[in-house]
Write a protein that binds this DNA or RNA. Structure first.
Lengths: 206, 206
DNA sequence: GTCTATAATTTGATAGAC
DNA sequence: GTCTATCAAATTATAGAC
């Protein structure tokens, strides 16, 4: 690829930002190229000029969203800290990430089940299993040492992901249940962050 | 409405069954009337004859899915059983419901965020808050009696929903993390059912 | 009620001027 | 690179025969 002028780069970026917003909001099937063009204050033709097709543009956005979602985990998993610290960090970081974009988790989960071919392949490329292996080994080690209760690390980890992700995935349900408007919702999430860490760590104490 | 002949009723029902399957799988935006017609082994025109428009057909399916999803809860909430029994029943029943249709929770959550107008109104009509109030009061009562730890019932209930719903919502991620094929997945869910009840009830013991 | 054929609209994609 | 105008395909919806 050749050196790009500033204007070129700006259009490319503007399109990506607009596409991210529209795809996150509406999903692949619901998003319209015209919506993205409007959001970017450009015309449809330019979207195709830079990204060829809706599908290609979507894949760019989706890949990026996956990284955004799972990168925190990768880092924390490999950090030289205690298991309890890892749990607290995982919960806090994941919630913060989703808090900056409430639709992120449901977007990812929904698209993953829509396109098993290309999306699931990307999951395998991220080597989810290796990402998790370190956590599992540490839990098993702590169990053997008798420092925490005997738990199944698979279910423990799934529960952690569940309690951090679900409040965003089920946002309308949560708002209905607890009668929360947009502002009260933010406060609720902040409480929840602390509650989840405490909940998990409490449950591990022998 | 007049008395229907058998053949009429059959077509109506065949359409509903087909629509449920296609909408659940692809969502409102991704579903095609032609797919539904094919699935029902009928022609598109009949779908419009019975349900007027795609939107109307969808609303019928969505309303039904909402009831399916939240009806269990309603019943269990009002049953004359102990708090621990309620928790066990809620977890077991909700997981069983979703196990019969893995896409049910993500379908509901996704569509709820897509159409705040009509879908969210339906949520309010179901009076989610009242559904939950009984549970909250019971938790607070048990806390006062000192029978369970001092917990925030909102987060407790949200965590319960999270741990039951997330394994289905994030099915591809779970399969990637724990290297599960379709069969191993069913077994995993059965284990999870027991694990979640134990996890919650353990966490409540003073 | 059920079908075939077709209208009407939407939407992804391209051609071609600048 | 960016735009306007337009095409081609897909898709919802309807008309009308049976």
């Amino acid at each position: 690829m050749e050196v790009k002028e500033l204007k070129d780069k700006n259009a490319e970026v503007k399109i990506l930002d607009a596409a991210r917003k529209v795809f996150l909001e509406k999903g692949l099937a619901g998003a319209r190229m015209q919506d993205i063009a409007n959001e970017a204050c450009l015309n449809k033709a330019l979207l195709h000029y830079y990204y060829r097709s809706k599908e290609k543009l979507f894949q760019t956005i989706f890949q990026d969203a996956l990284l955004n979602f799972f990168n925190n985990m990768q880092e924390i998993m490999n950090a030289p800290i205690s298991l309890f610290e890892k749990i607290e960090l995982l919960v806090a970081k994941e919630i913060d990430t989703m808090n900056s974009c409430h639709r992120l988790p449901i977007f990812i989960m929904n698209e993953l089940t829509q396109d098993p071919d290309s999306c699931l392949m990307k999951m395998k490329n991220m080597e989810m299993h290796k990402l998790y292996a370190k956590f599992r080994d540490e839990v098993e080690a702590e169990v053997k040492k008798g420092r925490i209760k005997k738990v199944n690390p698979d279910h423990l980890f799934l529960n952690l992901l569940a309690m951090t992700g679900y409040p965003f995935i089920a946002k309308p349900v949560v708002q209905g249940l607890f009668e929360l408007e947009e502002e009260g919702y933010s406060d609720f999430i902040e409480q929840h962050k602390k509650d989840v860490s405490r909940f998990i760590i409490d449950s591990l104490k022998p």
